[in-house]
């Protein structure tokens, strides 16, 4: 399945776009989801783990690769729920969110120090 997609996306890209221009215009992404049992926000890492920290996510700068990683995430039905690609950018400690919604997801609610703001709950 994955190979078919890889081929498809490769050819699609080759024939429909100027590769270098596209690489430049693509907003980098991370794959994020919620853990199936706890519901906690999680991120897909480059070495195929699910991390609770945004900095550990794989920063994906190529659209075809992003689609593949998303498909890979979505196939893990027994671990995660609601995987999607979220905009991100490179930062000193790893990828950082660019939109405030994603920034809240890295922390938890603002009215209590719950979620990832609780010590030990990252």
């Amino acid at each position: 399945m994955a190979e078919i997609w890889e081929n498809f996306l490769y050819w699609k890209r080759k024939f429909t776009t100027d590769e270098s221009a596209m690489a430049r215009s693509y907003t980098p992404k991370v794959v994020t989801a919620n853990a199936l049992v706890e519901g906690d926000v999680i991120y897909l890492t480059a070495d195929d783990r699910w991390s609770r920290r945004h900095e550990e996510a794989e920063l994906i700068e190529d659209e075809a690769h992003a689609q593949l990683r998303l498909l890979h995430a979505q196939s893990q039905k027994g671990l995660i729920v609601g995987a999607y690609l979220a905009d991100a950018k490179a930062g000193p400690d790893g990828p950082e969110p660019t939109h405030f919604r994603e920034a809240f997801r890295t922390r938890g609610p603002s009215n209590y120090a719950h979620g990832k703001q609780e010590t030990g709950n990252v």
């Binding site: 609610p109 719950h114 979620g115």
Partner: peptide, 20 residues
């Protein structure tokens, strides 16, 4: 799958929100 389960959990008032 989640697609199958989602309507079932919603029938029992269980949503997935941002953090949990």
């Amino acid at each position: 799958t989640e697609d199958e389960f989602r309507p079932l959990r919603l029938m029992n008032g269980l949503y997935l929100q941002l953090h949990a």
